[in-house]
Design a protein around this nucleic acid. Structure first.
Length: 256
DNA sequence: ATGGTCGTTGCACGA
């Protein structure tokens, strides 16, 4: 099973690139973020014609998450399932695909450490853990994939000096991610690339992509039962090149 | 050293 995550930064703007990429890469499951579409504008028929079932949780112009699958798509849950307050933003959708419970997540950006949105980000990560725990046990096959807006370590940042005092790298955010690992999840890309400095997001400005100035903030987290099945992981930099790319590249993980 | 681009929408703002 090939599972991937991609923040497409507007599915309306990116649909041609996504279609081309699906045909090329042939993922079995794709988690998308920032579709920026209402549910009734989601191009389900386009994906159906390509062989994919889909589930979308959108709100219109901002946010929006989806899961495509050609290996089954059941038990769809939009928003959090922990019984707490629902997120007013469309940032998480969950489904079961061929025995793996998959969540597509778009973690709040945080904006700055002194911004209210940063507190929202920290609360969101805590609720994500309650959501996962409400639906599954650490011994189950569980994947949480998406744009976490957190670089797990300084190895995931092109120049950590430039991010002192910024979001995406703060100890509090990293502690939230570590807590997900303590529950029983692992960064599946890192498992296969323990030392490589490889990024998944580059600012559109200033030629950051071509200058290698990026962050690895798009993650595929998986429980041990999934991690043991992984044979390969890659970040598809080619998808960040060419005409009208997203500012994020897809992360791809293969399971035996 | 600074700022640089996209996407949305509407005539800024979020990332």
């Amino acid at each position: 099973m090939r599972i991937a995550t991609w923040n497409v930064n507007s599915l309306k703007a990116r649909l041609p690139r996504v279609e081309e990429w699906l045909a090329d890469v042939q993922p079995d499951v794709l988690c998308m973020q920032e579709t920026k579409l209402a549910d009734d504008a989601f191009p389900a028929l386009t994906f159906s014609a390509l062989g994919y079932e889909s589930a979308h949780h959108g709100q219109g112009q901002w946010n929006g998450v989806a899961i495509l699958s050609r290996v089954g798509l059941t038990d769809v849950v939009a928003n959090f399932a922990d019984g707490g307050e629902p997120d007013p933003d469309a940032r998480i959708i969950t489904a079961v695909c061929d025995g793996v419970r998959v969540s597509s997540v778009y973690v709040p950006n945080g904006r700055s450490l002194d911004h209210e949105h940063y507190q929202y980000k920290l609360r969101w990560m805590a609720q994500l853990r309650r959501h996962v725990a409400a639906l599954a046990a650490p011994s189950d096959q569980v994947v949480v994939a998406g744009d976490f807006n957190i670089a797990p370590t300084d190895e995931d940042v092109y120049d950590p000096r430039k991010f002192v005092g910024a979001t995406h790298v703060s100890p509090e955010e990293r502690a939230e991610l570590a807590a997900l690992c303590e529950w029983g999840m692992e960064d599946l890309f890192r498992r296969h690339h323990p030392e490589d400095r490889i990024y998944s997001w580059w600012d559109y400005r200033a030629g950051d992509f071509h200058q290698g100035r990026g962050l690895r903030i798009d993650l595929v987290m998986g429980t041990a039962a999934v991690a043991e099945r992984t044979t390969f992981a890659v970040i598809d930099r080619n998808a960040r090149k060419g005409q009208s790319p997203s500012d994020h590249a897809p992360v791809i993980v293969d399971l035996a």
